[in-house]
Design a protein around this nucleic acid. Structure first.
Lengths: 229, 229
DNA sequence: CAAAGAAATGAGTGATTACTCACTTTACAG
DNA sequence: CTGTAAAGTGAGTAATCACTCATTTCTTTG
């Protein structure tokens, strides 16, 4: 049977975008994906982000996806396996290689400032968060209850993100761009400011009228002045 | 002045502290509280913060509190009622009058700077968060799933916190202390920096060695420089 | 002490949960 | 077409859930 257009009330939005990180994962690993499996993932992301993993039931996911409950367990051994298949790719994409490549380019260009670096990073991650808002909300909500996520994030952060960013901070410190403070402190300031904007922008007050470019420029200026030696 | 000598670094298991906001509520309303009821609250706070509201079972709360399951429902009509009785007082105390009174004093003293204002606020709220870490963790985790919490926070924020802080920001802007930017933007920066420190300090990396006073001073300097006109 | 009401109990309830499995349908190569 | 493996189904299952209630234990007070 083809897709029966039974529902269609909620959605039609941009799931090809909203689930980009997950689908990319399947593309990269050459794993075939069924139409019903895609609908299961879409429904699961919706419901997990709406009511949280623990309060979401597999029966509700099945009915919203328009499949039988057993179909979920044909593709994912457990409910937790379904969660993992949604969140894990997002964690991996979180410290995207794109950013790290960009970062190296910036470090090679001597005329770039710390502000330019921060602006590029923030724009890129804001775009990523826009495309993965629901999945990121699930990650944020569930990270404290699932040690696997903590381990993945811990590794990603301490072995990929932190060393690179630390190098960048030291680079701009040597250049005399920013004050010589512990990179952990600077990193925390920069990250919390960025996260604060992205979180407020997309999750807390998404309906507010936002001028992203203006806000980003103001933050760049704020950070540049605040971190001046 | 008010700071008493700290006994040890790890005093998070001191419930007379950890549940201070909740018990204050009972004191203020002259409600009698049973020993078993106190133990139910303690167990509920522990388990809610450990595994989240939805994944916590009333039977586990009862057994950890050392009471029968029925006892919980003698005091709280529903499981959600138990959650509300834990989180609501914390939300109310979140925009503490102490802070607001302090704020007025600061505004009256013309020699105080925006940095002093921020320092006082951050110290006070860090202390509050230290005493209510588990309850605040529950609040943060559950706020997106319970509209009652959102309504309480919304009201607290837009009717008490925001107007006062906005007044303060405008005061320091008129004084020439800080740059004339929208108070929403400044508030977001100040709040996310503060929250970022408190959250990292108490919830993400509580076992890290922290020098609170040094970190606060650095943040004060960062903000002062960053917001300079 | 005794009466009375409040506090506490724990077995019992129907609803819901994640998950299974024997079975049917579909897709597709030969 | 036929054979076969994968995809999909949905009734069934044991466990667990929040919550009830008839009963017992404790506390207060005259």
């Amino acid at each position: 049977m083809k897709d029966e257009q039974v529902k269609g009330e909620h959605m039609l939005d941009d799931y090809s975008d909203a689930l980009s990180a997950i689908f990319e994962q399947y593309l990269q690993t050459d794993t075939e994906i069924t139409d019903k499996q895609r609908r299961i993932l879409e429904a699961a992301v919706e419901i997990f982000s709406e009511k949280g993993y623990a309060a979401a039931s597999t029966s509700e996911i099945a009915s919203r996806a328009g499949v039988a409950e057993g179909t979920i367990f044909k593709h994912y051994k457990t409910k937790k396996g379904l969660l993992l298949s949604i969140v894990s790719p997002t964690i991996i994409k979180l410290g995207a290689p794109v950013v790290l490549r960009k970062l190296e380019k910036i470090l090679e260009a001597p005329y770039e400032t710390f502000g330019d670096f921060f602006r590029a990073l923030l724009r890129d991650r804001l775009e990523f968060a826009r495309k993965n808002t629901m999945t990121l909300k699930i990650l944020i909500q569930e990270v404290s209850y699932h040690p696997e996520f903590q381990a993945l994030l811990e590794e990603l952060f301490s072995e990929r993100i932190f060393p690179k960013i630390e190098k960048a901070i030291e680079h701009f410190q040597a250049k005399g761009d920013i004050k010589k403070l512990p990179s952990t402190t600077i990193l925390r300031w920069v990250m919390t400011l960025g996260l604060g904007y992205v979180g407020t922008r997309l999750m807390i007050l998404p309906d507010h009228e936002w001028d992203d470019e203006w806000e980003i420029e103001q933050m760049v200026e704020f950070i540049t002045k605040g971190l001046a030696p």
